[in-house]
């Protein structure tokens, strides 16, 4: 089967800083792919080019063969890419279920309908999605009252509403307690498996990354420096150097002692 997403030679610089430098990779159907790297490695820049918020200087991003570069985020969404945000973005003046209903209303192209009652549309579909993330019991609560972990799960339900082929999650567990992180990613992994959706996520928490990712890409200073399974990445000397510092640091300590 062919790749869901093909990224070729993606590059972006801000002024003199080469934030992303000639990055290429593919995402297979049903794959759970992690994008990691130290702060400033270019993860978020890379991400924002995938979902259309930033225009790359060069390169191509193809979703099932279709070019995404130059397409606004809302159209990329329509082509089957869902996303969650590092800091949750939800409609705070609506209930939990209405948030999911909004995604469904947009998916069914009914946002210009001015006579139906929005809150009565696609209730069953919305409930089913909330079941998926175990939020059904909170469906009538105002979104503004939710705990942060619940907001994250709600975002996941919203992102899945239009049955995406690809889900982009920018630091899905940022700002969460460790136990919540593991629960959220286990939930996501389960959904990936059942729904057959591919996921690309960035993450700082290595426990989360190594527990669930099928494959890991490591970025440093805008360049892709390693790619492989958890075990391969752990054993990779370049990755160790990037994360733990070069030999010179340890050498100095040894000299001191």
């Amino acid at each position: 089967m062919s790749a869901v997403l093909e990224v070729q030679g993606l590059s972006k610089s801000f002024g003199g800083v080469q934030a992303v430098d000639d990055v290429s990779f593919t995402v297979e159907p049903g794959e759970f792919l992690a994008l990691i790297g130290p702060n400033g490695a270019g993860k978020t820049t890379c991400f924002n080019m995938l979902n259309g918020y930033l225009r790359p200087d060069a390169g191509s991003v193809k979703l099932r063969g279709q070019e995404l570069i130059g397409t606004p985020p809302r159209k990329i969404w329509r082509m089957g890419v869902g996303r969650t945000f590092q800091i949750t973005e939800t409609f705070l003046s609506m209930t939990v279920r209405e948030n999911v209903q909004m995604a469904l209303i947009s998916h069914h192209r009914r946002i210009y309908d001015i006579f139906s009652r929005a809150t009565r549309l696609y209730v069953d579909e919305a409930n089913a999605l909330l079941d998926l993330v175990s939020m059904r019991d909170q469906s009538a609560r105002p979104c503004s009252e939710l705990a942060y972990g619940d907001l994250k799960r709600l975002e996941l339900a919203i992102a899945l509403a239009h049955r995406p082929a690809l889900l982009l999650m920018d630091e899905p567990t940022a700002g969460m307690a460790p136990s919540e992180r593991i629960a959220l990613m286990a939930l996501t992994a389960g959904i990936v498996e059942r729904e057959g959706v591919s996921v690309v996520f960035t993450e700082h928490d290595m426990d989360v990354v190594f527990a669930h990712a099928h494959r890991i890409l490591v970025l440093n200073r805008g360049m892709l420096i390693a790619e492989g399974s958890g075990a391969e990445i752990r054993a990779n000397p370049t990755v160790q150097e990037v994360y733990l510092g070069g030999g010179t640091v340890f050498q100095k300590e040894a000299d001191h002692a």
């Binding site: 606004p72 809302r74 969404w77 973005e89 998916h107 919203i158 239009h162």
Partner: peptide, 11 residues
Amino acid sequence: DSRTRAEAIGV
């Protein structure tokens, strides 16, 4: 409420 979210669901 959230322009970002609205844009991200195709609006």
